[in-house]
């Protein structure tokens, strides 16, 4: 049993060591906004913030969470930067199928928290999540808009 601080609440999770944070969030805690895409930290659909850092939760074991504060897409609009990112996503009409977008929004929020005025190179480096619908240009436009 682990205590996990998610979105400002400490929750109890029954899981074996080695269980990825992703599956604790989705199946144990019922927070399904964070998505499973690949399980090997390649696609970024499972991105959450751990102490503000964008982290691929499918490869982050529950025992490593310890006292860290986890922020998921469910709380994104409670964060000032997150709210701006969401508004930019809506204004730029970014999502198509939408499945990767929780992770994209989390990655963008982490970027803008760290680098409020990112260059195109910063955006390229930070926004490495895969999107099979090919919304990459719309994502970049939305990140620039959120930073403006």
């Amino acid at each position: 049993m682990y205590d996990v601080d998610v979105n400002g609440k400490v929750l109890k999770a029954d899981a074996e060591p080695g269980t990825p944070l992703l599956w604790v969030l989705r199946d144990t805690l019922g927070m399904i906004g964070t998505k499973y895409g690949c399980g090997i930290a390649q696609c970024g659909a499972c991105t959450v913030l751990i102490d503000g850092q964008a982290t691929r939760s499918c490869q982050f074991p529950i025992e490593a969470v310890e006292q860290s504060k986890i922020t998921t897409i469910e709380a994104i609009t409670e964060d000032e930067v997150g709210r701006k990112v969401v508004e930019a996503w809506v204004a730029a009409q970014v999502p198509q199928c939408g499945y990767c977008q929780s992770g994209q929004v989390m990655a963008a929020t982490a970027l803008l928290k760290e680098t409020p005025k990112p260059t195109d190179a910063d955006i390229s480096d930070a926004m490495s999540n895969l999107c099979r619908c090919g919304t990459y240009n719309a994502i970049a436009a939305a990140v620039r808009q959120a930073a403006a």
């Binding site: 399904i32 906004g33 897409i73 939408g98 929780s102």
Partner: peptide
Amino acid sequence: ARLDVRDKSTGRA
């Protein structure tokens, strides 16, 4: 505007 964009931008879809 697409009807599903806000839900898809906030993990609610």
